[in-house]
Design a protein around this nucleic acid. Structure first.
Length: 647
RNA sequence: GCCGUUGUAGCUCAGUGGUAGAGCACUUCCUUGGUAAGGAAGAGGUCGUGAGUUCAAUUCUCAUCAACGGCUCCA
């Protein structure tokens, strides 16, 4: 007999060889029908795998993350079975469950066959047939030499590649129906659990994620234990699309693009420009408080500067090709830092001048690959909330921390709470290729940045191979409504460019030293930040950011005089106000104002004129009662000045 | 850049091997109406661009450009 400890602490005795499924049955048949896998001593196992020793056991169902991922991984095998039956001879790479987006994929080499969306429908149909057969997922262990022989016989170079990295004695295969795959598992008990199937996408994916390798076909899908859950998921996707910044950006007149202008080049419409100006106003105030001075620099510079900065050796792929003028090559700038370094160098500096902080909403151009462009989130002309801080090593901690505090201050204003702080480190094997070749300085500065995070008690994750070419950084990662991850803001250390530009200051003992440089962009770029804000607020911007803050809606033409009076008073108070003076019914004016997401609507009719008051309507909330003109102005001006979130 | 999908009026979308349609928006007129669409009339498109097949192409084929979903890459 063995002892099985359940999550509530209860210990039950079972025969050796009992399965998690048997344990579930001993509790209730209903539970047994829902068990997808089991957590055995901290490891996820098949629910059908025999337990031969004492163990702590947690039964995993659809409600557990591991239950879902087991379900989806098994679905990937089901899809592979369907693929193999419809397209014999294909070769499989890997088919994991995914979290973001939820579901699974399988990377497959289809040879010369090009898969189309019609094939997806056929595959879906086949999967449904196979699922109904409720075939068991059967686990089988195999010695490595046998496994190698098996795949060598099939001529399957992908699985042979996988086997290379596996230890003998730990190699398992899983079969269901007519399909067998090298797989670590675990799997759900049988295919019958999979009741609702949707294959979502065909995409190319480079083998092992390397663009030099062959491109495999990646099939994406999602499955659920019931049709109802699939329908709910699809409805959720539809909802998310409504807050997509590209849709909102068009509806609200924020920005536009044009084929004749070029890919990834944003033209800001008047409404979007208002948002830009408000953000810049906020940045200027905040930076002035933080001891920054503003500068302005040109959009181009000569090749020599980018050789000095290291951009040409390390960053050339992301730069527009040069233009030749008078025998010189000029580049559009992809970063503002070199220009700022030249400003630092323009006059001799002493330690008394440090920290020297200069800021600019700098326009930079990056030649992003065409397939990477994405609405406002990924563009080729960016306006960066940039600044550079030149400081001594001793000042670094305080300066870096002050920058982090500035982030948090901004995030509070915008109610940003769903983000991940990422400590982005270099990757030693890419020194001299992607990263400046200074192993010791990398080590030191990475340690400095980590310390600031720890001292400031900021939760963070560490990731390799995400640093800038000149130093480590802290990135603030956010997710678009589509689920795509982006760096919203960044705070970087640079130990390299100070030396390459020969930047110096005179120390207290009259020697020369090179400053450390902090690059920071807490508001990222206008493009990405506004894209983010549109999605974050679902287009319902707080009053201070709203392009139109108040819309006056007279009930009929008879009240236009009063309406003009009110409008003039609001204008004078600095409020962005518009009036709907068409001969339309009030219902229509309200509907259109609501759809355009104007935060305040003022309905004016006979009653308001007689009393000298306003009927105030708040977007999304309906009629909120009546106020005098002065009362309303007092409230809204306060709301704007305080940059209130509106909720 | 690579794989897949799409491209018809300002917007959202029907549609056809015989040179196109709806709703909203727009213009004009009627209506002056109290909290999410009042009525009528009108105007608006060489069907992304270029080539090919055909008696005939918006429709079929190819190329190209762009957008979208991924991969790679990134603020």
């Amino acid at each position: 007999m063995i002892n099985i400890t359940l999550p509530d602490g209860a210990v039950k005795q079972f025969e050796k060889g009992v399965t998690a499924l048997d344990v579930a049955k001993s509790i209730s048949e209903g539970l047994a029908r829902k068990v997808l896998a089991a957590n055995v001593n901290g490891q996820v196992w098949d629910a059908t795998r025999p337990l031969n020793e004492d163990a702590t056991l947690k039964l995993l169902t659809w409600n557990d993350t591991e239950g879902k991922s087991t379900f989806w991984h098994s679905s990937a095998h089901l899809m592979a079975e369907a693929v193999e039956s419809l397209f014999p001879g294909v070769k499989f790479w890997v088919g994991p469950a995914t979290v973001n987006p939820p579901g699974f994929y399988y990377d497959i080499d289809f040879g010369d066959k090009k898969l189309t969306e019609e094939d997806l429908a056929k595959l879906e149909k086949k999967m449904n047939e196979l699922a109904k057969q409720s075939n068991a997922y059967v686990r089988k262990e195999m010695p490595k030499n046998e496994a190698v022989e098996y795949f060598a016989g099939k001529g399957d170079e992908y699985k042979l590649d996988l086997l290379q990295n596996l230890e003998d004695g730990k190699i398992t295969f899983y079969s269901q129906g007519n399909f067998t795959d090298l797989c670590r598992g675990p799997h759900i008990p049988n295919t019958g659990f999979i009741k609702a199937i949707k294959l979502t996408n065909i995409a190319g994916a480079y083998w092992k994620g390397d663009e030099k390798n062959k491109q495999l076909t990646r099939l994406y899908g999602i499955t659920f234990p019931s049709q109802k859950e699939l329908d709910e998921y699809l409805a959720l996707l539809e909802e998310a699309k409504k807050r997509d910044h590209r849709k909102l950006g068009k509806e609200l007149g924020i920005y536009t693009m044009d084929d004749d202008v070029g890919q990834g080049l944003i033209m800001w419409l008047p409404n979007g420009t208002v948002i830009i100006e408000e953000l810049e106003k906020l940045a200027k105030e905040t930076e002035e408080d933080g001891g920054y001075k503003r500068v302005v620099t040109p959009h181009i510079a000569k090749e020599s500067m980018y050789l000095t900065s290291g951009h040409l050796p390390y960053y050339a792929d992301s730069m527009y090709p040069p233009m030749e003028l008078d025998g010189e090559k000029y580049y559009l700038k992809s970063m503002n830092c070199p220009h700022h370094h030249k400003i630092f160098a323009a006059e001799p500096k002493s330690y008394r001048d440090l920290p020297y902080r200069i800021a600019e909403y700098g326009t930079v151009y990056r030649y992003e690959q065409s397939g990477e462009l994405f609405g406002l989130m990924r563009v080729r002309c960016l306006h960066m909330n940039d600044a550079h801080i030149y400081c001594t090593k001793e000042q670094f901690n305080d300066e870096f921390r002050a920058v982090n505090e500035m982030y948090l201050k901004y995030f509070k204003i915008f109610g940003v709470d769903k983000y991940v702080m990422r400590l982005s480190l270099h990757s030693p094997e890419k020194l001299g290729v992607k990263y400046v070749n200074e192993p010791q300085l990398w080590k030191e500065t990475e340690e400095m940045v980590r310390n600031v995070l720890i001292e400031s008690n900021i939760p963070y994750v560490e990731v390799q191979d995400e640093a800038a070419f000149y130093g480590p950084k802290i990135d603030v990662q956010i997710y678009s409504v589509i689920g795509r991850e982006f760096t919203l803001a960044t705070n970087q250390v640079d130990f390299s460019q100070g030396r390459s530009f020969k930047l110096q200051y005179t120390t207290a003992d009259n020697s020369a030293d090179t400053p450390l440089i902090i690059h920071r962009a807490p508001l990222g770029t206008h493009e990405r930040f506004i894209g983010f804000l549109l999605e974050h607020y679902a287009g319902k911007l707080p009053v201070w950011l709203s392009p139109v803050q108040v819309k006056i809606l007279p009930i009929s033409d008879k009240f236009l005089d009063y309406a003009h009076d009110v409008k003039a008073k609001l204008r004078k108070a600095g409020v962005r106000v518009e009036m709907d003076d068409r001969s339309e019914k009030i219902g229509k004016k309200i509907r259109e104002a609501e759809l355009s997401k104007v935060p305040y609507m003022l309905v004016l009719g006979e009653k308001e004129v007689a009393e000298g008051r306003l009927s105030v309507r708040r977007q999304g909330k309906g009629d909120t009662g009546s106020l005098s003109v002065d009362e309303f102005i007092g409230t809204i001006v306060d709301e704007i000045r305080e940059r209130k979130s509106g909720e």
